[in-house]
Design a protein around this nucleic acid. Structure first.
Lengths: 136, 136
DNA sequence: TTCCTTGCAAAACTTTTGCATTAAA
DNA sequence: TTTAATGCAAAAGTTTTGCAAGGAA
């Protein structure tokens, strides 16, 4: 994805395209992936980008608030961000912590509860925890 | 639930029944509920129990490891523990943070993905995020 | 005695915030 | 010139850990 395309996507979400935001978006959106703030910062530093930790956190929250990325709750320890905002689910390897996408058609709900009165469903987060199979 | 019954449940999970663990279990298991470590500590202190923060965390991790309670990942901020270990799902009010149980029969999966080779499903965590409905 | 548990405090880790500086509109 | 974004460091919040003291087997 070119810088111009990234800038366009930011603009489409009402986000000013600063140098740091472009670098951060370039990493996040290069490939569908799941990253923590620390991992993202490490990659940016490795790439030679001049970005501070505060800006990484601020930018992740900004992007998430504007729907450019999706925050995930897979462990209670730290926040994860998914650069794929299309509906989908996740496998979570308990031991390694690895996250793998599960495409929507792989899961079918034949029944879902109606939300309580006055409420509507904002999203469905499904995490299938995996462990090593006994015989494996 | 009497002290003796609580001690029995601990024993059934291979947990030595110390004074602090009994107090902690008494709070957790009194009613099916969702608690954070800090909330649990606050309640214990309010009840006049002599328990330290470290013991609360250690005990929660011990209980979770032995299957007496279930850790929940509903936000990336802190860990939640559910005293109901029977399979079930959750509504999560984004605004207030409130957690509500969704009984198993309320959700039916007509299709679930097969786990990757050598892996088995350890659990399914389903969180339905709720927001205020526009007209409400 | 021996082993396990607890409390306290400190440390580790994740995330947010205050504020001066810099960059952009 | 006015506003917004950034970096740095400090602070805040959550969880873990080291270690001495206490309690149970």
């Amino acid at each position: 994805m070119s810088i111009a395309e990234i800038a366009e996507r930011l603009a489409a979400h009402g986000i000013q395209p600063t140098a740091q935001r472009l670098r951060i978006a370039a990493v996040l959106l290069s490939v569908p992936q799941h990253l923590s703030a620390e991992q993202l910062l490490a990659q940016l530093v490795a790439d030679g980008a001049r970005v501070s930790k505060a800006t990484v956190y601020n930018t992740l929250n900004l992007f998430a608030g504007r729907g450019l990325i999706r925050p995930l709750s897979v462990d209670g320890v730290r926040a994860w961000f998914d650069s794929n905002v299309e509906p989908h689910y996740h496998f979570h390897d308990i031991e390694s912590g690895a996250l793998t996408d599960v495409a929507v058609p792989e899961v079918q709900f034949s029944r879902l509860p109606a939300p309580p009165a006055g409420m509507e469903v904002a999203g469905i987060e499904l995490v299938i925890r995996l462990r090593k199979a006994p015989g494996a």
